[in-house]
Design a protein around this nucleic acid. Structure first.
Lengths: 205, 205
DNA sequence: AGGCTACCGTACCAATGGGTACGGTGCAAG
DNA sequence: CTTGCACCGTACCCATTGGTACGGTAGCCT
């Protein structure tokens, strides 16, 4: 293999460019108003090429979602070593920043809007996002429990508690447009607070 | 006024019937696939009447959302007297039952799907749902604090903590279709657990 | 050079659905 | 009985958009 060390195998850059443009328009317009023609035009491609490569609108955006979720997940899970107080705070800030991003909001809106017709987006999003994140964080929490720094019964529930304390219903309210995306200070405050509360519930000291 | 004591003033029952049918189809089909013709047909009305009464699709469903949210809210907030341990558990069960209902899921999906185009649904939903619920629960929590049974700084944040512990990210996952609606046992377990954790954080004893 | 492949741009097709117009009907007031 | 209003049912208009077809061109292989 002549690949540079840590690139995915054989990704056509032109394909990535198209996916990027599709994400861009999804972010700006929402799924319903995003048209294949608009994607083709901005990517300086033809509709026919889009259909040849991706089959249809749904499959195109399925790939957009997978790619974006993978990338977000990778960013989110950087640096999961250390004491819970610092790891949780950092993870919390990263997660809230992610959930407040235009990209995340657009993707979640698309998945939710299409769910009645077809749960494919939602499932792809879950599989590439929340599930992987959850698995890793749960493993981390178990490690900390084994090291005697935390106490809980069910690590999955403990993790969901942390997420709940952190996010509350802010994500849904951002998705509905009831509140604007969280600002940096609010994010920091929430991460700090959720960490403190979590440790009060499950920390040993 | 010759109204019976606690009915809304002068609500045309025919109008209510149409709103009910619209909600029914919204629940079955989702907003995008719900057509004005389908509503008219099932309500044995004509499209022209729908447009004469409601103006357009958006305003029709705006009213659907308001009416439904008001009704849900009323059910949710019944019986808010007593000790936190029992009130919170009951409220938690009610809220989770509500959020797991087909109606709530359909309405939230509609609000989120339309948010990029127009935040009207989301704002109506927030104003008639979450905001009123939150205000009442916050007042309750403050009362309990004044009675010496709870301790916290910011009642709004305390309330959001409870909701977070209760719901976690289950609502978003139901909306995306990643998980099916919560069952009765899961609801009871979550309400119990959230109450216990909340009291561990904020209870005096 | 000749031809093949991939792709661009655009025109086209067909379905869908919001919104309007209109003729017909039942009912209530005068 | 007559008039008129509210409403039903249906036909219609038109903009949008997913998806297809096709002619033209640029580059690559032989």
């Amino acid at each position: 293999m002549s690949n540079p060390p840590d690139s995915e195998p054989e990704i056509d850059p032109r394909r990535l460019e198209i996916l990027g443009v599709a994400m861009e328009i999804l972010r700006e317009q929402g799924y319903a108003k995003t048209t294949m023609l608009a994607v083709a035009k901005r990517a300086r491609a033809s509709k026919e090429t889009l259909y040849a490569w991706f089959g249809n609108k749904q499959r195109l955006f399925d790939e957009v979602i997978r790619a974006k979720a993978d990338r977000m997940n990778r960013d989110l899970l950087a640096g999961l070593d250390g004491a819970p107080a610092v790891v949780l705070r950092r993870f919390g800030e990263n997660l809230l920043t992610l959930l407040s991003s235009d990209d995340s909001i657009a993707i979640n809106r698309a998945a939710i809007a299409e769910a009645p017709r077809d749960p494919a987006f939602g499932q792809a999003l879950a599989a590439h996002g929340r599930q992987r994140t959850g698995a890793l964080m749960i493993r981390y929490l178990e490690g900390q429990r084994d090291a005697g720094r935390l106490t809980f019964e069910d690590p999955a529930r403990a993790f969901e508690s942390f997420v709940g304390l952190l996010v509350g219903d802010a994500q849904v309210r951002m998705l509905t447009g009831a509140i604007p995306p969280l600002g940096a200070e609010e994010i920091a405050a929430r991460a700090e607070r959720a960490t403190v509360l979590f440790l009060r519930l499950y920390g040993n000291s």
